[in-house]
Structure formats: structure tokens, C-alpha cells
Design a protein around this nucleic acid. Structure first.
Lengths: 205, 205
DNA sequence: AAAAATCCTTATCTTTTGTTAACGTTTTGA
DNA sequence: TCAAAACGTTAACAAAAGATAAGGATTTTT
């Protein structure tokens, strides 16, 4: 993982994306970008590993990553993130405890990074503190809502229904992610997903 | 649901509990408590209903609540919260969209409430804004970590393993919550949970 | 370009879970 | 206090998912 200062074009993309949460003034943005660096990941390169404390939160400019755990020697994929989204071993990053899972590039990826210490510095900087707290709040609330939906789906839906939702609402995941990872993501085995797909071919709801 | 101004003793409990997230100065607390009211729920009384926009976030002083959805006419329990925890249809509260589930008192409950509009007022109040943004950020981050663990458990563990975790780590839930709700919470049917319990009786790991 | 690894499907068999229903027990509410 | 409702267990059967292995297609690596 290489770290470089970002160029103006990529920073503009980042600024646009963050407007989903907060809008920075020119002055604030000038201070903010001093803490941003770029990085890239080759396919299968790791962004986070079990046992490590996450030092960075990333913004995916291009490419994608997958989150996975290892259980009984087997990789189990829990999630994916694509360009335009944030990536981090959040719990580890936030609590400063060793992470319990891995994050790996699914496709070659370019990232913008902010380190934990830089983020703390911004949260303590008189001219940035308020806006950064707000940014942090809205970001966490946004992902909280996503997680809430995800948990609901595990409790109220069958694996087959979860797959159908994926087909109708998140086709991009299906197109960019190998099927055995999607199976884990749905909470089932690849073999079981293959059977569900076959069933749906002959009774497409 | 009745709303009353809170008495000093309960406010002190609240203040202690919130110190997990932020510490208010005397001045800040004085302003803060002006926006807090009390309420109580009889057993089975609803705090939130499907289709309603959540107007309040609550802090549970005593008692407990359960979160549930209705699917095909059946109640499916997704979560519980106990005294000392926050309660809200978060997504609805945060996004101002109709909620998709119900929240009901599992035991008779007393709550402290903050309305959405009062919270917005505090977020806009010059002397409170910063502290409230911080409070919101840390709260959301805290629950984000909880949700992350919960999702992991659905992907990496069998229902039986999830039940064993509950036995070893969250015995309080087992003691205060009827078993058929716990079954839903684990993502299985009550019959299946009964079978798992029987299995574990004869092979207690 | 050849060899190796990965991926998806399919088949078989086992295990688990879901479904429905019945039964006593406990709790609730009139 | 008494009837009704709710609760946990168990049984029997059906449906679904897990485990394992094999085969062919695709991709990756060397």
C-alpha cells in the first residue's frame, strides 16, 4: 500500500461525495485536505487484517473491497464496498482495539485515506472540530441505517428472499462480485445459492 | 404514553449514563434538561408503530422494550433494549421517513424522551451544538459497533452457536425475555430453539 | 501455451430447520 | 376466581441447507 498526496481532480470527487453528509467551506476544505493521502491496492491486497488496529479510514475512488472473517480456516465474506463508499474496520478504527476480520481488494482499487491521528487532530482543531463532529455523526448515522436494514433482512427473510432482493435492488453487487462471496454475504453456502438460482430460473416469481 | 417533566433524581441517572458518550458542563446540562421529558409505558404498550414517523428518542430508566416486524401477519422480534439503553426507531427518527417496525414495552417501562425537534434545536443552539454533535457521533458509533457484531454473528455462526454466545455473554437477555422472542432474535423458530436447548442439555459443550 | 487454481454446477447423503399439531403448564385478564 | 390466552416442549413429516465430492468451464499463473 503506497501513500501519496492526492491531486486536485480526485479531491474534487471526494468533496462531491462527502456532500452527502456535510458541505465544507473553502477554508475548512483547505484544512481538511492537508490530512488526506492517496493509496492504491492491487487485487487481493489487504487493507486490514485480523489482529491489527485499523490506522486509516478510506474512501474508495475506484474499485471495490470485500470484508471477510476466517472461521475454522475458511474465509467467510461479510460485506463489500464499492467506489464512492467509505471503507474501514470501523470497530477497530473507532475503539482502537485489534480488528476481528480482513479487508481485501476485490478489484484493483484507488483510495483516499485519513489516519486515525489526523482525524483526531481535525476533531481537536478549533476551525474544524464542529464540522468534523457533524461529519462523523452523519456518517455513522448513515451506516447505522444500512446495518439496521441488513439485520432486519436476516431475521425476517429467507435466504431465497434475500437473494431476490439483491437481484431487484442491488444488481451491481451481482455483476461485480463472484458468486461464492455473495453466498456468504447472504448467510448461506455457495452450493445452496446455486440451488436457489436454479429454482428461480424455473419460477421467476 | 404520558409525558411529564423529569425529577432531579432521574435526571442524575440519565447524566451518569450519558457519560459513556459525553460529559456535559453544568451550563450545558441546564440547557439540555429543558428538552427532556418523562414518559411511561405499560406492558405491551407501543413506543413506535409501522408507518409512523418516530418523533422521539428514548432512554430507558426502568423496564425493557422489544423491536419487532410484522411479516405475513406474524410478529418477528428483532431486538431488545433494557434499562440504561437508548430506544428509537432510529432510521425513522433520523431520516424522517415512516418506520417499518414496531417497538413495544416488554416489561412496564419508564423513559426519558427527547423529541426530534428539541434535538434539532439543541443541534442549532450556539452553546450546545458542538457537544450535541459529538454526543450524536459517539452514540451512533457505539451502536454501529454493536450492529457490526450482530451482522457478523449471522454470517459466521450457526443458530446453535449464536444461542451459546447468548448463554455465555448475555445471560440477562435469557432471563428477562420470553423464549419465543429470543428464537426470532436468533433468526430461528421457537420450535428450533427448543430443540437446540435440548441438545445442549445432554452435551453442554 | 501449458499447468494450476478457481469457480459454478450438480449429485448424493446427512443434518438442520420449518411446519403443523398436540399436550400440559403458566400467565393473563375479565 | 375462572376461562382464555400464551408459552415451552415434543412429535411427525416436509423442506431446506450443509458437507463432500466430482466434473467441466474459466481464469490465473508460470
Amino acid at each position: 500500500m503506497i501513500k501519496l498526496p492526492p491531486d486536485p481532480a480526485t479531491l474534487l470527487v471526494f468533496r462531491k461525495a462527502l456532500e452527502k453528509f456535510v458541505t465544507f467551506s473553502e477554508e475548512e476544505w483547505r484544512l481538511f485536505v492537508q490530512h488526506v493521502s492517496t493509496s492504491s491496492l492491487k487485487k487481493k491486497e489487504h487493507f486490514a487484517r485480523e489482529g491489527e488496529i485499523a490506522s486509516y479510514i478510506g474512501f474508495i475512488l475506484t474499485g471495490s473491497v470485500r470484508y471477510y472473517h476466517i472461521k475454522d480456516g475458511e474465509e467467510i465474506t461479510g460485506y463489500f464496498s464499492f467506489d464512492g463508499e467509505l471503507v474501514s474496520s470501523y470497530k477497530s478504527f473507532l475503539t482502537r482495539q485489534p480488528g476481528t476480520g480482513y479487508i481485501q481488494a476485490l478489484e484493483p482499487a484507488t483510495l483516499l485515506l485519513i489516519s486515525y491521528h489526523d482525524l483526531q487532530n481535525m476533531l481537536n482543531h478549533p476551525l474544524l472540530a464542529y464540522k468534523m463532529e457533524r461529519f462523523g455523526r452523519l456518517t455513522a448515522e448513515y451506516y447505522l441505517c444500512c446495518y439496521e436494514e441488513r439485520i432486519s433482512s436476516f431475521i425476517t427473510q429467507t435466504p431465497e428472499e434475500r437473494y431476490q432482493d439483491l437481484v431487484s435492488k442491488e444488481r451491481e453487487i451481482l455483476q461485480r462480485v463472484p458468486q461464492h462471496y455473495i453466498a456468504n454475504f447472504l448467510g448461506i453456502t455457495p452450493v445452496s445459492l446455486s440451488r436457489i438460482r436454479k429454482r428461480l430460473l424455473f419460477q421467476p416469481s
